[in-house]
Design a protein around this nucleic acid. Structure first.
Length: 311
DNA sequence: ATGACCACCTGCGAGC
DNA sequence: TGCTCGCAGGTGGTCA
């Protein structure tokens, strides 16, 4: 589930159904799903046993669950595997999750049949009768355990420290974003998809925000004025908030919340996936263009291509 | 150092 | 029916 609104829907589900619970057992059914966990599947499972899940957090498309505990009980559970991290009051551990293109985090009854692409199962030491499942058809996503950035209030995992804040983060710095955008020698859609500049924006919401802003995806970032950047950021936020309000975008059952339910924002898309359908502003057929091994959807009338700049 | 590409996977629908 | 092709919400390593 890819972009920020869909990931936020999942975060809220985790917060409601998983936070506060203590892990009892972890089962890794596909090694690729924990490939970002350097110490491997056995370590991943052993390390998590006995830990208590804290508040679910998100930055851009990354999710994480800070974990606490890991005292004597966890040491025993690890059966002699030396801890990577020395317990400390200034930093801790978190379970990091990325859904990639097709990942799902589902809260399922323990007796529900395994999904075809079930990759990781996490059982809890309580009698609520549900477990957390990571299901991922294409295995681009995965879970891993990391040390958190010392002193960070949100317990940010160290390996995603390079990910920029997302536009729904109150601490996102609009002025700094504009400056960074101007510095880049690239085009606007590439910049929107660069998670080290602004996180959480993917192919759908980039196209939607550009359509709302009447900007062509190939416009050089160097041409952006402060007001233009501000307007674009406003549209990015508006479209993401609108999507969030209806549970995110899903074209099929691949993009669901922790209870397996789809969002409705696909009905409100103005550009993405609307090739040959009339632009909702001017009626001109929306076009699709191959772009970076993917697609860009835009209105050829509302979103005029930039004049080719002289070399 | 920065920017551009493509490999990493599985499945589905269209066309032949 | 069944093959091949193109395409899918993302990221990171590698190349220039």
């Amino acid at each position: 589930m890819p972009e920020l609104p869909e990931v936020e829907v999942v975060r809220r589900g985790l917060e409601r159904w998983i936070s506060g619970r203590t892990i009892d057992a972890v089962e890794v059914l596909h090694p690729r799903a924990i490939r970002r966990h350097a110490a491997g599947a056995a370590d991943f499972a052993a390390r998590l046993k006995g830990l208590r899940i804290g508040t679910a957090c998100r930055r851009g498309k990354y999710l994480w669950l800070p974990v606490t505990g890991g005292g004597p009980a966890a040491q025993t559970a690890a059966e002699g595997i030396p801890p990577i991290i020395t317990p400390s009051v200034t930093h801790g551990l978190a379970i990091l999750a990325h859904l990639g293109m097709s990942g799902q985090l589902l809260v399922q009854p323990q007796d529900a049949p395994d999904e075809k692409h079930l990759r990781i199962r996490i059982r809890f030491a309580d009698d609520l009768g549900t477990e957390l499942r990571f299901v991922d058809q294409r295995t681009f996503g995965g879970l891993s355990v990391h040390d958190t950035v010392p002193g960070d209030a949100d317990h940010l995992p160290d390996v995603i420290a390079h990910i920029a804040r997302d536009p729904l983060d109150p601490a996102f710095d609009d002025a700094a974003f504009h400056t960074a955008l101007r510095r880049r020698r690239t085009t606007i859609k590439r910049a929107l998809l660069d998670q080290s500049l602004i996180s959480g924006v993917g192919n759908i919401y980039a196209d939607e925000a550009l359509w709302r802003s009447r900007l062509h995806y190939d416009r050089p970032t160097a041409t952006f004025t402060r007001p233009r950047t501000a307007e674009l950021l406003g549209h990015v936020r508006d479209v993401m908030n609108a999507a969030l309000a209806v549970g995110g975008t899903s074209f099929d059952s691949l993009y669901v919340n922790v209870n397996g339910e789809s969002g409705y924002f696909d009905r409100s898309l103005d550009a993405y996936g609307r090739e040959d359908e009339p632009c909702r502003r001017c009626g001109t057929p929306i076009r699709r263009r191959p772009w970076m091994n993917r697609s860009s959807y835009f209105c050829p009338r509302c979103q005029r291509p930039p004049r080719p700049s002289r070399p």
